[in-house]
Design a binder for these strands. Structure first.
Length: 303
DNA sequence: TTCCAGGGGTAGA
DNA sequence: TCTACCCATGGA
């Protein structure tokens, strides 16, 4: 059963540029479709089931060209499922996020930021905070290939299946919480991160850890940061990454990617220090992460 | 074989 | 608040 949904972006948006700008689009249950310049994902809609969806955009240069979502499901999409899916796609692609103040500041700051096309390079995220938290924990102290492997194993071991070909949606915390820790570590090789992901899943399933979007709305960035850091396995890097995914750009996630870029762009003589590196983006206020992110994207494009 | 990766928790100062 | 030390796992 196939359904086509059409979503017109409220602001300029370039799907392909967003999918290619960082790795989130290729972490299971997501996959980047290079030939279609689109996104494939298996999504679990509670009360309905698991669907397969492909998101593409008509115009290659983005703009406000409509997005097409082709949804495959075992039974016809209900009105509720259709609405839930629209909401999730919009959230994943940040279609409702107003970045006009950031783009205006970019024009003031000049190169390379003034060269940013609105809607390019935005960071794709997951429909749920739980999924992003698990994935961010799986980026810590490991190479990208390891993160992809862990996401794939986690989905394969605990995700709800779509059809019979092995494709699965991202697991719900309840699916993890209902097995013992020994079984969890036996099915997914996450190393010492396993304890963090398991504890997070048990807490989210029991309601002890509230990861609903609503529970974070209205909080200051610092309040959200403190809540995130209360999760075991989440330190400064992971909290900053999560804040970015949640649309708060006040903090920069300092990791090897940040350090390597800063050394290449601003400290080629080897006098790098973290505090001096962070000072460079101090004037960007609530847009520091995006300033750094686009600085890096433009630097890479140039290289 | 050794090092270290898109770090974080903990103990001790 | 800062620093050492330890943490599983796999790629280089």
């Amino acid at each position: 059963m196939q359904t086509r949904l059409r979503i017109t972006p409220k602001y300029p948006f370039n799907l392909n540029a967003c999918l290619r700008s960082h790795g989130w689009a290729s972490l299971q249950p997501n996959a980047y479709l290079p030939d279609k310049e689109g996104l494939l994902r298996y999504e679990h809609l509670p009360g309905f089931g698991v669907v397969k969806m492909e998101v593409t955009q008509g115009a290659k240069d983005g703009g406000q060209s409509p997005l097409t979502v082709i949804v495959d499901s075992a039974t016809p999409l209900t009105a509720d499922a259709r609405q839930a899916l629209r909401k999730r796609v919009a959230h994943m692609l940040r279609l409702d996020e107003d970045l006009q103040p950031f783009y205006a500041l970019c024009q003031v700051k000049g190169r390379p930021w003034s060269g940013i096309q609105p809607g390019e390079g935005l960071l794709v995220r997951s429909p749920s905070i739980y999924e992003d938290l698990v994935k961010v924990i799986c980026t810590t102290n490991i190479q990208w290939g390891g993160t992809k492997r862990m996401a794939a194993e986690f989905v394969s071991a605990f995700g709800a299946p779509y059809g019979g070909d092995g494709e699965r949606a991202f697991p719900l915390p309840e699916a993890v919480a209902c097995v013992r820790f020994e079984e969890f570590t036996g099915r997914v090789r996450m190393g010492y991160r396993a304890a963090y992901v398991y504890e997070l899943s048990v807490g989210a399933a029991s309601g002890e850890i509230d990861l609903s979007h609503a529970s974070f709305s209205g909080l200051t960035t610092e309040e959200i940061r403190q809540r995130l850091k209360a999760v075991k396995g989440v330190g400064d890097y992971a909290a900053a990454s999560m804040l970015m995914l949640m649309g708060r750009y006040d903090f920069i996630a300092v990791d090897t990617v940040f350090r390597d870029f800063m050394k290449a762009r601003y400290f080629p003589t080897g006098d790098y220090s973290e505090s001096r590196a962070l000072e460079i983006y101090q004037g960007w206020g609530e847009w520091k992460y995006l300033a750094y992110w686009f600085d890096m994207l433009k630097f890479r494009q140039q290289a």
